[in-house]
Amino acid sequence: MASSRLVAGSAVADAEFSRDISLGTTIIAVQFAGGVVLGADSRTSSGSYVANRTQDKITPLLDHVYLCRSGSASDTQAIAGYVQYYLAQLQAERGGPVRVETAAMMAMQMAYGNKNALQAGLIVAGFDADGGSVYAIPLGGTLLRVPFAIGGSGSAYITGWCDKNWRGDMSRDEALDFVRNALRHAMARDSSSGGCVRTVVIDAAGASREFIPGPKLQPTYDELPAPA
């Protein structure tokens, strides 16, 4: 952790602004009939300071597998880098696409094998021959196949909402809506989540990204709409 020496001279400096860069975050991924939707907010904080307000927390591992990152920004970037490298190597050796489960397994190996050194909550989701699938890899490096996963500090605020609104038979558009609304509500209550909403839909046609700027999000309870 950076010490206060680094920002000497500034009275308020210290802890609040020089903490580890962390993705106090809301991330989410949902499986639907023909694929998966991943989503994330765009806030990266360093203590109370928003270090980056348009961060991309959805990182490709392969063309058809993406990773949602939460926890320490540097730790998860490092993990993503290694997993990308190993998967590229594996894909070359096999001469064909790698399964989502294998990609998730690789990410788990990194997270589990270095659990004492890392602060990483991951969601791996993608599309392969067996359709869409979502894998949650929470802090200790447990690997779980789930129909949908939420993660990051913001997820605590929307667990109930997600339990209520998730359905196993959602269409692509319904899944996308589910993801956006979940993120909207999390960002409305979690000060560590905010900014914009990024989504990635992966299906047989490949991956497609969407970006919703913060002001375009529908306001929730007690919020004002952005001026036109």
């Binding site: 589990y112 659990k115 200790g140 490096g141 447990t142 690997l143």
Partner: peptide, 8 residues
Amino acid sequence: GEISDFQY
């Protein structure tokens, strides 16, 4: 106990 360890 810890599930990741059990998976290991």
